[in-house]
């Protein structure tokens, strides 16, 4: 089987993969990075979103071989080495932006990508950007609120605060 090499969360990673091995399978099964999840097979739910060369992608819709030489960031690589969560992670906890936690890694990775592109997104921009991330638990209210808070916006006036 061909060998693939990439950098994952700042560390070199390599392994043997088949052509059909998806990036998410490589991350979960070869590297044991099980924080990235698979919630559908039609590229819609976004539980598998990771960053490849700085861009959010669905790791269930990309082959491991295509990530050859790439810089991959997964949810495991977001917090500081001492475990301190980043601003998005902290806001998700502070504002109850997660329940069962299954969609959460993808949500966090998408939210980080959004904030990198648009540091203070509006509610509508956040909702639009999350089109490819499905959450069944939260009704999105607190996810949107958390992302607004993570971007430094005042969320105290949002309904049900």
């Amino acid at each position: 089987m061909p060998q693939v090499k990439m950098t994952v969360n700042g560390k070199p990673a390599s392994g043997e993969v088949e052509g059909r091995t998806l990036l998410v399978e490589f991350l979960r099964e070869n590297l044991g990075l099980t924080g990235t999840h698979v919630g559908c097979d039609t590229s819609q739910c976004g539980a598998c979103v990771v960053h490849v060369d700085g861009k959010a992608v669905k790791s269930c819709t990309m082959f491991a071989a295509e990530a050859e030489g790439a810089e991959v960031l997964t949810i495991e690589g977001v917090a500081a080495p001492d475990g301190t969560m980043d601003a998005v992670q902290q806001a998700f906890q502070e504002h109850h932006g997660l329940q069962c936690g299954f969609c959460t890694p993808g949500m966090v990775m998408s939210a980080r990508a959004l904030l990198a592109e648009n540091p203070t997104p509006s509610e509508a921009e956040i909702r639009d950007y999350l089109e490819g991330n499905i959450c069944r638990c939260t009704g999105y209210h607190n996810i949107v609120k958390a992302i607004m808070a993570a971007s430094g916006q005042d969320v105290s006036t949002i309904a049900a605060e």
């Binding site: 099980t34 475990g83 969560m85 998700f92």
Partner: peptide
């Protein structure tokens, strides 16, 4: 604040498929 959040937010959740 939910204590379980930290593991879910850092990829340390432990689901059956894991």
């Amino acid at each position: 604040k939910r204590r379980e959040d930290v593991r879910f937010l850092t990829g340390a959740g432990h689901y059956t498929d894991d």
